[in-house]
């Protein structure tokens, strides 16, 4: 659940792109060709080795039988097929549902919050909120889950004070988990939207008003259409973040919501039948496929947003 945008975000477009002086001296100032490439080598080598090894092994395992199986390692589609059936399918659907709903709520709620923060006159508030968002979006689920367990769990402060249990409240159900997820999804949305909202020029608002648009119409015809790529991109990012979250659910022991991340962890730690390790890898591949789709949707949206609001 690593988050891309940061408080320091903003447009990553280089202002000086392509402004090479084009004269002789400029060329001499550059490092020589060969060493020029050297700087990128460590990063590429690291990702190829570490990422490539882990990813390759996962894919390989997902499509082969375990070594302990009779007949040794050979290609099979059984793992993949098992990963989209029965309890595994339920957990996949559960994850998708939880992620879709919580990301939707966070997107809808995050926009007004981000707008208030970005347009706030108080710089200190802005800074505090952006830094806090950075922490909440990146810190990981365990502490967040505990804060909620202490607040709304079965022995939580609010649960006790307002006798919520007798009203049928449970933090460990779908909506409880959604509430906890929002605690890191809304900050993530605020961080995602901040550069886009900062990119909304005052001239556009004034030009719209000058052309007879009131505040509502300005938002309906100018601001929202301009923000749509960012909002969609943010939604997709939040979905991915919620989809891959594991710690939150793991920390809320006794949660009744089936999640694919929990299934993988269980399968890996041998809590279930032996030989399910490769099914866990297959589930991992399932997740990569979903996350890959997410990215495939998000990247072009982000491009468009950058073109409009840079």
């Amino acid at each position: 659940m690593s988050a891309i945008p940061t408080a320091a975000g903003g447009s990553s477009r280089p202002r000086s792109a392509g402004r090479s002086a084009g004269l002789g001296p400029a060329r001499r100032l550059r490092p020589p060709r060969l060493t020029g490439w050297l700087g990128v080598v460590p990063l590429l080598a690291f990702t190829v080795v570490v990422f490539g090894l882990a990813f390759g092994t996962m894919v390989f395992g997902a499509f082969t039988t375990p070594e302990t199986a009779p007949g040794g390692v050979h290609l099979t589609g059984a793992n993949m097929s098992a990963s989209v059936h029965g309890a595994y399918l339920t957990s996949l659907i559960g994850s998708v549902k939880l992620s879709a709903v919580s990301a939707l709520i966070a997107t809808v709620v995050g926009l007004p919050i981000a707008h208030v923060i970005v347009t706030s006159r108080f710089r200190a508030l802005r800074r505090a909120v952006l830094a806090g968002s950075g922490v909440l979006a990146n810190f990981g689920g365990v502490p967040l889950a505990f804060a909620f367990v202490a607040t709304l769990g079965n022995a939580g402060v609010l649960t006790h004070r307002f006798h919520l249990l007798s009203h049928g409240w449970s933090l460990y159900g779908f909506w409880g988990l959604t509430l906890v997820y929002l605690y890191f999804l809304i900050p993530l949305m605020v961080l995602t939207l901040t550069p886009a909202l900062e990119g909304l020029r005052r001239q556009w608002c004034e030009a719209a008003r000058n052309n007879g648009a009131n505040t509502f119409r300005y938002w309906a015809h100018v601001a929202l259409p301009l923000l749509t790529p960012s909002l969609l991109g943010g939604y997709v990012l939040l979905f991915g973040s919620a989809f891959s979250a594991y710690a939150t659910a793991a920390a809320m022991v006794g949660s009744s919501v089936p999640l694919v991340t929990m299934q993988i962890a269980d399968a890996l730690s041998g809590n279930v039948l032996v030989g399910q390790g490769n099914v866990a890898l297959a589930l991992g591949v399932d997740m990569v496929v979903v996350a890959g789709l997410v990215m495939a949707v998000q990247l072009p949206l982000q491009r468009r947003s950058a073109r409009w609001l840079a």
């Binding site: 991340t261 991992g284 996350a291």
Partner: peptide, 18 residues
């Protein structure tokens, strides 16, 4: 950006397999 495509759980599945 590649690591974004591979959730932490999937990543650790691969690592533990290695």
């Amino acid at each position: 950006m590649l690591p974004l495509v591979v959730p932490a759980v999937a990543l650790v599945a691969g690592i533990s397999a290695v």
